[in-house]
């Protein structure tokens, strides 16, 4: 269990630089908080189990003077058993409430393709095919394997596939959304940090799935406009 401790320290040290835990949008930020919450609750459970585990082993392992000992018979204990049924339920309720609310917030109607026409949103069409990404912007500009987004503007991706199922994943910016050949899926988020972020295909899609990557660049709105004009 020493290893666990070691790697956990490593985790705490580098936690903020792991992409999933380094959000660049309110969307990803919500998930990050949820991850920390669930991790905290679960560590509590793990630590309790480990304390009991180590304690019982230390105290009750066979020693040379206990070789012939026959322990007292006991079949169980109602109260204790109720305790470890009810407490986990409580912990799960604490976790379930934000789970459901966040899931509702992030899984907006948009991801099912029924979002209304919101004037404020930047709409970008994403076409996935083995093994590249094609991004079409509102003025018909096209870029491949490179997605450019304006800072602090809500964007709506409308994704379709030319062949098999792919999955759009830019961990700093948002969770995954699968891309299907027979239906359109949507993803809505607002980038709030400038910079370049990695993106990857996250659904196995054939020979070069590993190479089906894209880069996302978040620019100031004005730089975004000039970039579009250069396309």
């Amino acid at each position: 269990m020493k290893k666990t401790g070691w790697i956990l320290t490593l985790f705490l040290l580098s936690g903020c630089s792991l992409r999933v835990l380094d959000p660049a949008s309110p969307y990803a930020d919500k998930i990050t908080r949820l991850i920390y919450l669930s991790f905290g609750i679960m560590m509590l459970v793990f630590v309790v189990v480990m304390i009991l585990f180590v304690h019982f082993l230390k105290k009750f392992h066979e020693t040379s003077d206990r070789v012939d000992e026959i322990p007292v018979d006991e079949s169980g204990n109602r109260k204790l058993e109720i305790t470890w049924t009810v407490l986990p339920v409580l912990l799960l309720v604490i976790l379930a409430v934000p789970t459901v609310t966040t899931t509702y917030q992030l899984t907006s109607g948009a991801s099912q393709g029924e979002g209304g026409q919101d004037k404020e949103r930047v709409i970008i069409h994403v076409k996935a095919e083995q093994f590249r990404w094609e991004f079409t912007y509102e003025g018909g500009e096209v870029s491949y394997d490179k997605l450019v987004l304006p800072l602090d503007k809500e964007v709506e991706l409308r994704l379709t596939s030319e062949d098999v199922i792919h999955s759009f994943w830019a961990p700093n910016l948002a969770g995954k959304i699968d891309v299907f050949p027979d239906k359109e899926t949507r993803l809505v988020f607002t980038a709030n940090k400038l910079g370049d972020f990695q993106g990857k295909c996250a659904e196995f899609c054939g020979s070069h799935h590993a190479l089906m990557r894209f880069e996302t660049t978040v620019m100031e709105a004005s730089a975004y406009e000039t970039w579009l004009q250069d396309q």
């Binding site: 998930i31 949820l34 679960m42 899931t103 992030l106 961990p171």
Partner: peptide
Amino acid sequence: TGVMLAVAAADYQYHD
């Protein structure tokens, strides 16, 4: 980690 994965919104990140 199974319970963490069950948190649907968070699974958008963990998945695959």
